[in-house]
Amino acid sequence: MNSKEYETYYVPAQSHWPLVGAIALFLIAIGAGQFVSTLASGEDSWGGWVLIAGIAMVIYMVYGWFSNVIHESMAGKYSQQMDNSFKQGMSWFIFSEVMFFAAFFGALLYARVFSVPWLDGAGNNLMTGEVLWPEFTASWPLIKTPDGTETTAMGWYGLPLINTLLLLTSSVTAHFAHVALEHDKRPQVKFWLGLTILLGAVFLCLQVAEYAHAYSEEMKLYLDSGIYGNTFFMLTGFHGMHVTLGTIMLIVVFIRIMKGHFTSKNHFAFQAASWYWHFVDVVWVLLFVFVYII
């Protein structure tokens, strides 16, 4: 690092966006809290509206904040060092997302390795199996829970396999787009990036179709169908939300490419979106192995 970099570090002026963001999160938390609290009782809820207002405000905040940042970046106020800050910030953010998924994968593995076999008397839990639910037999996927809820397991062939291929392909196309940008071949960037977005969108549509199939009378695989349904929907659901977010990021980057933003050297937003996309791909591969196949 040379000292010249330090002299141009850009410290932004006062900004109202952080406060807008804090209020937005407040509305989301209050709204979601009230909405969820009234779910069971079925009483009138104002929470949903507050929640929607909060989400709208977050979108407004992200739009305004990022506009500022893009404006500053285009005006050449940022240095290489600022770019490093953004890159490191994004990598650590992705690391925090990895740990979020780790909690749910941890729950999945704990259930499979420990809690389900223990309920059937494995290890030193003979009496647990004998006394609590003597009828219960451990299996994975857990298609019959100790209290007798029955469901069916989602196979890995068919939609999930197609989805895996789609996402893996999209990781490759995203990489091609990145390489093209580094060589300043804009038409190719547009093509590969557009294809990546398309693949992401198709993935999401198929995921919706899979959920519809799971919730059908034929499968009866619901969120509350015991630990198998819990882990299945929480893991794939959070993954789907992240794919949605990643797709939105790619679309924003695509629009910026159309507007002629980014250079072959300087394209942090592009990199961030592309890193994020690779991250959701890796999570999916783990999901495919641990939730669907094994």
Binding site: P146, T149, I227
Partner: peptide
């Protein structure tokens, strides 16, 4: 608590110790 999952409920295959 609110959506009927059983991560921490043995009746659904989960475990409060988890």
């Amino acid at each position: 608590t609110y959506f009927g999952t059983s991560f921490f409920d043995a009746a659904g295959g989960g475990d409060p110790v988890m």
